[in-house]
Design a protein around this nucleic acid. Sequence first.
DNA 1: GACGATATTTAGTTGACGCTTACGTAAGTA
DNA 2: TACTTACGTAAGCGTCAACTAAATATCGTC
Lengths: 105, 105
Amino acid sequence: MDAALKALAEPRRREILRLVWMRELPATDIADHFADVTRSAISQHLAVLKTAGLVTERRDGTRRLYRADRNEMKKLRKFLDEYWTSGLERLRDVAEAAQRDKEKR
Amino acid sequence: MDAALKALAEPRRREILRLVWMRELPATDIADHFADVTRSAISQHLAVLKTAGLVTERRDGTRRLYRADRNEMKKLRKFLDEYWTSGLERLRDVAEAAQRDKEKR
DNA sequence: GACGATATTTAGTTGACGCTTACGTAAGTA
DNA sequence: TACTTACGTAAGCGTCAACTAAATATCGTC
């Protein structure tokens, strides 16, 4: 989950993810979309996204086709929604804070 | 939105946000929660979160009380949900891809 | 097997980031 | 006024992340 959030922190990677959101796309086409950056850079971004589980790679001859793993994004959304309010953790923190307050008095 | 995502990419900042999710907390209490890091470091993290709009600051005497801005998080969630599938942008991209395919044939 | 096409990988550089230490500042308190 | 508490800010440092250029892998074709 940590890797996914870090991956999304980079604007270019978000753009890539958007490009392959609805369809598969070979690395070249993805790279062509970015005028100001080398293919190599895009390849590295794709590696990060793949490691984070946000895209899947499929080989077809010399080409590599990428596609967004929407299920992983779904998990991320769920994580973000639940992280702050996860029951047990929250209760523990509140209890600790109360304890701290008590000790100070 | 970019700033918010970058801010969340850092685990400590996520933890801070969680601490002040349900209640206000002075900077000292927040810093005390992290044993392995200086108060200064936490102060800097708080500045990042504030700039990203994820927390609000309220002064009370010498203390500064922080609290999560849940509305901003709500916006972020909405952004994440809609970014990949935003109507016009998506249509444009699809059109471009179709054009590219056509030219190759 | 050599070659062109498609892509990743590997140095190597640069800038950003997180951290600590040291200092500055504002608000209470004796 | 002097002192303490609570906090931010500046400078400096080490590390990591993003980039380029060059080298390397892999597949299909002649």
